[in-house]
Design a protein around this nucleic acid. Structure first.
Length: 635
RNA sequence: GCUGCUGUGGCUCAGCUGGUAGAGCAGCGCACUCGUAAUGCGCAGGUCAACGGUUCGAAUCCGUUCAGCAGCUCCA
């Protein structure tokens, strides 16, 4: 019986009898056989020693494939687990999956793991890896599996088995003395795992549930070659240098002090950035037909009861009393915006009404969740509320999507979209939620946008589209969001007068583009590694002289540049030019302009651009005009 | 909030198993007037996060609290 194997490129090979994936790889090339980690058989990922006994399509997986990396890292996690079992025999095992950039394993052990244990564990892993123990798969019955793991006190595995669907194939993989409940696939043997490193240790709730016991999670990574591991570690070091908390300190952008955990202080340079972003925001929104309002930080408790925040958001809010009456510090801007809407009567002719607000909101975040500017307890939302007819929903959502995209494109951000649906603790009927969710979904579909769906992650008053941006380590943060809301208009009984002269109920959109100015500045800082585009740079031009003989000359140029709106300053210190240049580079100042006697005589200046080095001598007026244009165009 | 780790002059960090603190950068002063990533010399600056305990003696050991870091949970 011959077997025909078809490959992704459309080519195929015939084998006289059944073959394993490894044998197929070997028959193609020696190199492929060496690099093969697994195979994708008719779309399903399989072990390399899977026997192919009928015609199939096959993709041989190597390190180049994400699925190949997952197999490699997953097997690495079993290697880690075996080492831990050998060194700390009373350890019970949770789960040990591959993740982006590595893998982890969750342990429950009387031993409290610390980084001091890492060398010993790594040494044991190396010993096992070198032995080249094969990963052996067995398919066993549910009863056998339960018996085996129950006998060994592996209560977490027992729980996992009990939760497997009735028709699930239950399999185990064993390498050396370690047998784990596992669906696979795995590498043929531990010997392929040449380079690995334990990275960190952290607590993690069993099954991600706060109510469960916290296990000890060991994070690690692995690669087929030591050079790849070294490269990865170097990359991590580089990423750390982009950390906005570090750059924020270096450039004097912001700081967080013990006196206000989660309440950032903005320093003069950070305020320049903020104000530039706000100026841009106002320009953009004015063009897009938004009005701007500002509502109070503190409002009466009854308002928050009416909005539903009291019932659904109380744990995240701060409260205060004024003359014995309860007030709350706003965690969101919407109730204030609705009061503004209600302040006057509205005709259908006015809709949609787009009301923007740079609103400072306070939310109580758990202490462990705080993170630089990314996660804080008070932040400024570049908020807007759109009041509209039902017939305007789709167009408004689309234009908000376009607006946010325009903002992110200006900075060159890549982002991904998520659609969050009705949470458990929601207001309103399923039907209304269904309609609102469909409206968001349709708008994205019609724009041809791809998105992932987060079931149950919506706001309590409506579903939302979230825009996620990446930080220096690839962690994603929600920035922009578009939320469609049928609830608040109902709760606050807001109306417009229709064509028929009767009162009707408008629909609301809540949306932010930056998300929070604070978080956005964090993302921006990491994206540019502190080297902001000129229009955002706190200092745009620094002028320096070779000796103090040229000081009056550059001071005059500086004054002229300032008069044209350039943030220019003179470094008049009695230091060598190399020293001044070094510092202006460290401060990521876009333009360093140097004048010696030659420049002074010719009315020129020597130009040095951040990241580009010395660019030669330029005419002062011409260069000034160029910088002004660059700032104006926000290039 | 939970688990682990950390907390020394403005910043970055030394300080082995307990014997009342040290460097570099930044700052200030003096000299040098210099051509594209650190000129030299000098000076000043610290209740070692806070509180309590052990000890003849604590930055160092123990406890509590606060803050930070990584992750979990939660979310712009």
């Amino acid at each position: 019986m011959s077997v025909k194997i078809t490959f992704p490129d459309g080519g195929s090979r015939e084998y006289e009898e059944k073959v394993t994936i490894a044998e197929v790889a070997k028959s193609i090339s020696h190199k492929l056989a060496k690099n093969a980690l697994g195979g994708e058989v008719d779309g399903a990922v399989r072990d390399l020693n899977t026997v192919l006994d009928h015609d199939v399509t096959l993709k041989i997986l190597t390190w180049e494939d994400e699925a190949g990396q997952r197999i490699f890292r997953h097997s690495s996690s079993h290697l880690l687990a075996e080492a831990v079992q050998n060194l700390f025999p009373d350890t019970k095992f949770g789960i040990g999956p591959a993740i982006k950039d590595g893998f982890y394993y969750d342990f429950d052990s009387s031993h409290v793991f610390s980084e001091d244990d890492f060398p010993a564990i790594e040494k044991e892993m190396a010993r096992i890896a070198k032995e080249g123990r094969p990963f052996m798969k067995s398919v066993i019955s549910r009863a056998e599996a339960l018996q085996y793991f129950a006998d060994r006190g592996e209560s977490y595995k027992v729980e996992l088995i009990n939760d497997l669907p009735a028709d699930a194939e239950i399999s185990t993989y064993q390498q050396g003395g370690f047998l784990d409940l596992c669906a696979g696939p795995h590498l043929p043997s531990t010997e392929k795992i040449k380079a690995f490193k334990l990275m960190s240790i952290a607590g993690a709730y069993w099954r991600g549930d706060e109510k469960n016991k916290m296990l000890q999670r060991v994070y690690a990574t692995s690669f087929p070659k030591q050079a790849q591991l070294d490269e990865y570690l170097a990359l991590l070091e580089e990423a750390k240098k982009r950390d906005h908390r570090r750059i924020g300190q270096e450039l004097g952008l912001f700081t967080v002090m013990d006196e206000g955990p989660g309440f950032p202080f903005f320093l003069p340079n950070g305020m320049i950035l903020r104000n530039e972003l706000e100026n841009y925001w106002r320009e953009l929104h004015q063009k897009a037909g938004y009005a701007e309002i500002r509502t109070p930080l503190i409002l009466n408790r009854s308002l928050w009861e009416q909005s539903g925040h009291w019932d659904h958001y109380k744990d995240n809010m701060y409260f205060t009393k004024i003359d014995d009456v309860d007030f709350a510090v706003k965690p969101m801007n919407c109730p204030g915006a609705i009061l503004v809407y209600k302040n006057s009567l509205h005709s259908y002719r006015e809709l949609p009404i787009r009301m923007g607000e740079m609103g400072l909101v306070h939310r109580h975040e758990k202490s462990g969740a705080l993170h630089g500017l990314m996660r804080v307890r008070c932040f400024t939302q570049d908020d807007a509320h759109i009041f509209m007819l039902e017939s305007q929903i789709k167009d408004e959502i689309k234009s908000v999507i376009k607006l946010i995209d325009e903002v992110y494109r200006l900075f060159g951000f890549e982002y991904h979209l998520e659609l969050s649906t009705k949470p458990e603790d929601a207001m309103g009927s399923d039907e209304i939620w269904e309609a609102a969710t469909d409206a968001l979904r349709n708008a994205m579909d019609e724009e041809g946008l791809s998105y992932q769906v987060n079931e149950g992650d919506g706001a309590f008053y409506g579903p939302k589209i979230d825009f996620h941006l990446k930080d220096c380590l690839g962690r994603t943060w929600q920035c922009g969001t578009i939320q469609l809301d049928f609830q608040m208009p109902e709760k606050f009984d807001i109306t417009y007068i229709g064509e028929d002269g009767e009162k009707h109920r408008p629909v609301m959109i809540h949306r932010v583009a930056f998300g929070s100015i604070e978080r956005f500045i964090g993302i921006l800082t990491e994206h540019f590694a502190g080297a902001f585009p000129t229009w955002l740079a706190p200092v745009q031009v620094r002028l320096m002289s070779i000796t103090d003989h040229q000081l009056p000359y550059i001071e005059k140029i500086c004054a002229a540049m300032k008069a044209q709106g350039i943030r220019a300053e003179v470094d008049g210190r009695n230091e060598k030019i190399g020293y001044k240049i070094r510092e202006s580079h460290a401060m990521r100042i876009p333009y360093a302009l140097v004048a010696g006697d030659k420049e002074m005589e010719n009315g020129t200046i020597s130009l040095r651009r951040h990241g580009q080095g010395d660019l030669g001598v330029r005419d002062v007026n011409e260069l000034t005009a160029e910088i002004v244009a660059e700032i104006k165009e926000r290039k």
